[in-house]
């Protein structure tokens, strides 16, 4: 196993860890706003790490740029979608969850 392969495995492992964190947040957090936080932020970084890992394994620079493009488009879309869902929830007068003390 070459050094490149080792780095690839580490990056994919770290990427999966963040996807797991995002999913756990989606399941465990109390309302639409807090869930949006977790899934948007964690998946952005999870995808970035997996794209970096893939970039180490592909043959050409054109493909590497393509992976980068996928990441940029996905993060733009997910941030925009998170905003739209949040705004829709606000307009529907969903009260953000607050810890009862």
């Amino acid at each position: 196993m070459s050094l490149i392969d080792l780095i690839t495995i580490l990056l994919i492992g770290a990427g999966c860890f963040f996807f797991l964190a995002g999913t756990l947040g989606l399941l465990r957090l109390p309302d639409v706003f807090t869930r949006s936080h977790a899934i948007t932020k964690a998946d952005n970084v999870g995808l970035m790490l997996i794209m970096l890992a893939a970039a180490l394994q592909v043959e050409t620079w054109a493909t590497r740029f393509k992976l980068g493009l996928i990441w940029i488009l996905t993060l733009t879309a997910s941030a925009t979608v998170a905003h739209l869902i949040g705004r829709a929830a606000l307009n529907a007068e969903q009260k953000p969850w607050e810890e009862s003390t």
Binding site: F18, A21, G22, L24, D31, H37, A42, V45, G46, E98
Partner: peptide, 19 residues
């Protein structure tokens, strides 16, 4: 931000105070 999310969601009682 992702490290922050991970740090919170893996705790038994998730430490958040949203506003």
């Amino acid at each position: 931000s992702s490290v922050d999310v991970a740090r919170r969601v893996f705790q038994p009682h998730i430490p958040i105070k949203p506003r």
